[in-house]
C-alpha cells in the first residue's frame, strides 16, 4: 500500500478534513483534528494493520497562535512495513486530547512523558502523572518559554555570533 492509497483511506475516514502536509522523507505526514484521533487510529489499527505504536511526542510552537502545541504519533504497519505520522495541533487554551491507551496499552508512559514535558492533558488517561520529573514541579520544562540557561547571566555573551 503506497502513501496515496493510505491518504485516500484516511480522507475517507475523516470526512476529507485531514491535511497531508509535505510527504517528507518517505513518511506520510497527516494533520488531523483532536476529535478524529480515536476513530482514525481505530480504523488504521483494525482495518489497515497499523498495529504498532512507535512513538508519541509533542512539540511547542509558541508563534503559531491557536495551534501552539502539536502532538505527534508515529504508527507502523508491521505487515506491509509502512509508517505514518499523525499530527494533532492543540491550542494552549484548550490543551486536551483523547488518550490512545484505549488502543495501545503502551501509550500509557509515552503520554505521561508528553504530559510531563508539555502539559498536554490526555483525557481519559488512567494515570496521568509526571514520570521523569519530580512530582512537585510546577511547570512543563520543554515548553519554549523556559530557557535552558539562566537568561540573566552576563558572563556568557554570544551576541557576536547573533545568538
Amino acid at each position: 500500500m503506497n502513501n496515496e492509497i493510505l491518504m485516500a483511506f484516511i480522507n475517507e475516514n475523516t470526512n476529507n478534513s485531514a491535511v497531508c502536509s509535505a510527504d517528507q522523507y518517505d513518511m506520510l505526514n497527516v494533520n488531523i483534528k483532536a476529535d478524529q484521533l480515536i476513530d482514525l487510529v481505530d480504523v488504521l489499527k483494525n482495518k489497515q494493520g497499523f498495529i504498532y505504536l512507535t512513538d508519541i511526542c509533542a512539540a511547542h510552537y509558541p508563534e503559531k497562535v491557536g495551534a501552539e502545541f502539536e502532538v505527534i504519533y508515529h504508527l507502523h504497519n508491521l505487515i506491509e512495513n509502512q509508517r505514518v505520522r499523525l499530527k494533532v495541533a492543540l491550542a494552549e487554551s484548550d490543551i486536551n486530547i483523547p488518550t490512545l491507551t484505549v488502543h495501545f496499552v503502551g501509550a500509557n508512559w509515552m503520554e505521561r512523558e508528553t504530559f510531563d514535558f508539555y502539559g498536554v492533558n490526555f483525557v481519559g488517561h488512567p494515570d496521568l502523572r509526571r514520570i521523569l520529573n519530580m512530582d512537585d514541579m510546577d511547570y512543563h520544562p520543554l515548553r519554549k518559554q523556559y530557557a535552558l540557561e539562566d537568561e540573566t547571566r552576563t558572563d556568557k555573551n554570544d551576541t557576536f555570533f547573533g545568538r
Binding site: T54, C57, H74
Partner: peptide, 19 residues
C-alpha cells in the same frame, strides 16, 4: 524539515524524531 529515523539498537528500535 522533519525526519524520523530509527536504527536497531541493542535493546530495540532506537528512533530519532528530529524537527
Amino acid at each position: 524539515g522533519e525526519v524520523y529515523y530509527s536504527v536497531e539498537g541493542a535493546n530495540g528500535e532506537l528512533g530519532y524524531y528530529l524537527v
